[in-house]
Amino acid sequence: MNETRREFLGGSLIAGAAVGVGLLADKLVQRSARLEKPGPLTPALTPQGKLIQVATTDAGVAHQHPMPPHAGTALGREEARQGVPGRKWVMVIDLAKCSGCKNCTIACGKMHGTPVDREWIRVFRMQDARHTAPYWFPKPCFHCDNPPCTKVCPVGATYKRQDGIVLIDNERCIGCRFCMAACPYSTRYFNWGRPDNSLAVNAAYSPETGVPRRVGTVEKCDFCPEMAREGILPACVTSCDMAAVYFGDQNEDAVTNADKETVSFSQLLEERAGYRYLAELGTEPRVYYLPPKNRDFPKPSSPHKHKPESPSSPEAHSSHAHAGMSK
């Protein structure tokens, strides 16, 4: 970590002194220009399964959750290879609730500073057969327990930790892109050019955050490990207005969503017939999906749809309590 910091300091002294002032002004101009641009259209799915185009601002950008970039303390390159002892991070995505608003995509992109179309969680419009109803399918990295990507890495730059997370050390990655070819879920992205590191300029590199991002290396969803260690949910979970994404510790048998509903992981899967996408490939993903049955996705109506910290509706609450209790 110290070495990284020293490296970084050296780099920033050279680069920063030379171009810093000019670039700062440049960046500000660019930033304001970006804000003035009319927002792009986002496809949204109505409850009837009809695809409509809505302005991205309507789809949830306006009520973006303020998300400090990388809230936790990230570990250095060697420490980051060990997982958090006793943890087994796991994610559950409720397809019945996903409205396709792409808040998760936007929040993730904002937090990790990824360019548009290369966000680490992306929402796919899925339709299993011609006559079946379409549904939205947010796809992060599945952090497989038998990960095809880490199998093929020639230098151990991508690795599996004991807490289930698959990470990438961007300072070791040689950019061969074998892992991208090996991932059957296409969740890996590549820094083809020089990445924009303006958000992470003061950070020392850590595989737990993936920033500052490195040209010529592979990156992907990291389950926000430095935040998870400190009890902070990943950006895609907290930004979900439908509270469709759950994150938690499998060892504790509990997952939590944006509404701070914490439910039993095993009961949730049992009652809602949870499954893993393309599990027949033998990859053992750590991301579970709840089938899109009885879909409930009006598009997020108001910025303050959120329920208060302790749920006010007793029905909703007791049903979850039941989920936690029943055997």
Binding site: A15, G16, L23, K27, P66, S198, R214, G216
Partner: peptide, 15 residues
């Protein structure tokens, strides 16, 4: 390849 680190950061105030 020498990395060009640019300066400028956005502050997200978490109130």
């Amino acid at each position: 390849i020498a990395f060009c680190l640019t300066i400028g950061s956005a502050v997200f105030a978490a109130s």
